[in-house]
């Protein structure tokens, strides 16, 4: 199954209520797969709608999420930029939703080949105001599938938008996937949702405006307190051959898949290389990386960008050991061999 198809199938099976999308390469298979499956009529009753723009799609998600529904959208880099306004509102309104970015090379229209240059946008904000997205970075098609259900679980647990930051390679590659049984769509909606004001309760309002500055600051503090709980409880990462490693690669998504091979090649040459893979890009697993960095000779941040995640790596490592960056961009995919060449040249400096 293709990575993009896995997202779509997972959405149906995890009991998602609505998907709103707009075509953009390299993720259009998500909308196409859902259109073909026609879950509204043939499977779970999930709404699938092609919107007139990415902006409309994210605002449709806002509306459905405001009713307490499991709503999602997907896009690729330029389209995700258009969704930033909506994401800021969704985060401010504390609505749960899932957004998938099958990212490509940028900036601008960029290329349609895989890229990881949306890291800053994903983990540092993107839209206006003090808010955070919970960001999950899959590196297999199985994880693409699994993170849809996990994403919704986290979104509803914290009433916060969750972003799956994938890339064109994971979205387009085909791998075996273990599917999960069909879950029912939820019939009970959260108490805060706009479902029609019944006489037994006050009206429910979904809004993001606070004209009084202290009210807005209190709201911001409440959001920050929530983000702190997320940071304490939801950090996910994977270690690969770090036990005896003298050097560690930090990579996520497609880069981490490529670096698995780099590590194999390095180990054949007797270089003790391991990898640390952040699965949650926000919250970033900085404490674990800090611990690891105490016992190694060097850390290599490897990304398909001109150097974005490396900043968080440097902040986490806190000068424990040198941090070097290697990246390709614009849709160019690095080879395991070129990463090894870079690492060897740095080791010999």
């Amino acid at each position: 199954m293709k990575g993009n198809e896995a997202i779509a199938e997972a959405a149906i099976r995890c009991g998602c209520d609505a998907y709103f999308g707009y075509p953009i390469t390299p993720q259009s298979e998500i909308l196409e797969y859902l259109a073909l499956e026609d879950p509204y009529n043939k499977r779970s009753g999930m709404v699938v709608l092609q919107a007139e723009s990415e902006i409309a799609a994210i605002n449709m998600v806002y509306g459905a999420a405001g009713c307490g529904k499991k709503a999602m959208t997907s896009s690729s880099s330029p389209g995700i930029s258009l969704k930033q306004e909506g994401l800021s509102y969704i985060a401010a309104g504390e609505l749960p939703c899932l957004v998938v970015n099958v990212s490509r090379g940028g900036p601008g229209l960029g290329s349609i080949q895989p890229g990881q240059a949306d890291y800053f946008q994903s983990v540092k904000g993107g839209g206006h105001g003090d808010y955070r997205l919970i960001v999950l970075a899959p590196n297999t098609v199985q994880e693409q599938y699994d993170f849809v259900d996990l994403g919704f679980e986290l979104a509803f647990k914290y009433r916060n938008p969750v972003l799956i930051l994938s890339d064109g390679a994971i979205g387009q590659m085909m791998e075996k996937v273990v599917l999960t049984p069909q879950k029912d769509r939820s019939v009970t909606l959260p108490s805060w949702a706009t479902t029609g004001k019944t006489p037994d309760r006050e009206r429910n309002r979904i809004f993001t405006l606070n004209i009084e500055t202290d009210v807005q600051e209190n709201h911001n503090r409440k959001l920050q307190a929530k983000y702190k709980v997320v940071e304490e409880n939801e950090i996910r990462y994977q270690e690969f051959k770090t036990d005896d490693a003298e050097y560690i690669i930090v990579a996520y998504g497609i880069s981490s898949r490529i670096c698995m091979k780099t590590i194999q090649l390095a180990r054949e040459k007797g270089i003790k290389l391991g990898m640390f893979r952040p699965i949650t890009l926000w919250p970033f697993p900085k404490q674990k990386l800090f611990e690891l960095s105490k016992n190694v000779k060097g850390i290599f941040a490897v990304e398909h960008s001109c150097g974005q995640m490396v900043e968080d790596v440097e902040l986490a490592v806190k000068n424990n050991t040198p941090v070097k960056f290697y990246g390709r961009s614009g849709g160019v995919i690095m080879t395991p061999q070129e990463v090894l060449l870079f690492i060897e040249s740095e080791m010999n400096k």
Binding site: A57, N59, Y62, E85, G86, Y89, N204
Partner: peptide, 13 residues
């Protein structure tokens, strides 16, 4: 029960 939309986005919401 009311939702407040971003500027111009009410029909999408």
């Amino acid at each position: 029960d009311t939702q407040s939309a971003a500027h111009g986005r009410a029909p999408a919401v």
